[in-house]
């Protein structure tokens, strides 16, 4: 008779444990085996802590913040491209953060479950692909289809690029870069890393800007085009940002599901009359309250940006990152 846990129980625990610590933890649990119930309880109390410890060992806080920022920017850019009204929506920014968080989780899990040692470029891309797949899975339900698809594509590009430039900790630890116990040196100077990241973000912003300019149907429309669409009965609803001085910004929701932005003249009574004539749903927003709302919604993003900048500055000063 086999004096130990069942093969199924052991295989299940082995599946959950990160490969880097699988051998010793499985062996220790086997050695402590008293009964199947005790083994299950032991595994339940041990495995989550082992996974968390592995995540702590393989996650680099600075790079994770960089990734979080890039992923959130990817979904923000996708929303800017495909559905600008989503950004102004009450829960728009948190809705965009959700797939970014899932993509980040994919990257973290990929690092924790990777075998230590060198990895090929293809293996390095496994994390971003897993992250993008997870983000796509959750964003199907929470975001418009095009925002989800474009966001995931941009997230894949951004996180893949960061991944290739700044390899995971577990991979770096395999090299002879250990200068001081508890502090593994980065393979390239942190200022260079920062410059690379800034360049990447600038390139991304330029690409987004170009794409936005070439897709007027989903971006800005002139006042005349707006009136034409109104006359043709294409506009379903309009949100007017009322408190701006001079020109007034408005976001249109079209009947075909798309959206666009336009600028109305300071006196837009004619346009309002025309909207009423064509039974367009009009919502006028007070931008004084809107600014506060926007700041409140952007607070997590700004906090993330702040922490990231602090970490980068600390790193540039030669101080080790926490953890």
């Amino acid at each position: 008779m086999r004096g130990g846990p069942s093969r199924f129980a052991e295989a299940l625990v082995a599946l959950l444990l990160p490969p880097a610590c699988r051998e010793e933890v499985l062996g220790d649990l086997h050695e402590r085996f008293r009964s199947p119930a005790a083994y299950a309880l032991d595994a339940l109390r041990t495995v989550p802590l082992v996974i968390l410890s592995r995540i702590r060992r393989t996650a680099d806080p600075g790079i994770l913040l960089m990734q979080a920022l890039a992923l959130y920017l990817a979904f923000l850019a996708a929303a800017r491209l495909a559905a600008p009204s989503l950004i102004q929506d009450q829960l728009g920014l948190p809705r965009l953060a959700f797939p970014a968080v899932m993509a980040l989780l994919g990257l973290i899990l990929d690092d924790a479950y990777a075998r230590p040692g060198p990895r090929s470029g293809l293996h390095l891309m496994r994390g971003p692909v897993l992250g993008a797949a997870l983000a796509l899975l959750v964003s199907q339900e929470t975001l418009p289809r095009w925002v989800a698809l474009e966001g995931c594509a941009l997230a894949l590009v951004f996180s893949g690029a960061i991944r290739l430039w700044f390899p995971p900790l577990a991979m770096r630890a395999a090299g002879p870069k250990q200068t001081d116990p508890g502090h593994t040196e980065f393979p390239m100077p942190s200022k260079t890393r920062l410059a690379f990241f800034c360049a990447l973000m600038i390139c991304g912003a330029i690409v987004i800007s170009i794409l936005t300019t070439h897709r007027p149907s989903r971006g800005a429309v002139t006042y005349s085009e707006f009136l034409d669409r109104l006359q043709n009965g294409q506009v379903a609803s309009v949100v007017i940002d009322a408190a701006r001085s001079g020109a007034v910004e408005a976001t249109l929701r079209l009947k075909d599901g798309g959206s666009a932005r336009t600028v109305l003249p300071a006196d837009y009574r004619d346009a309002l009359r025309s909207m009423r004539d064509h039974l367009v749903n009009v919502e006028v927003r007070d931008s004084g309250a809107g600014v506060g709302q926007m700041l409140l919604k952007a607070a997590p993003f700004l906090a993330l940006l702040g922490v990231w900048i602090v970490l980068i500055i600390r790193k540039a000063g030669g101080q080790p990152l926490p953890g």
Binding site: D42, T46, L49, V50, S53, R56
Partner: peptide
């Protein structure tokens, strides 16, 4: 046992 592993790491 998990707490011991975390501390050892």
């Amino acid at each position: 046992l998990g707490a011991v592993y975390v501390t050892l790491d």
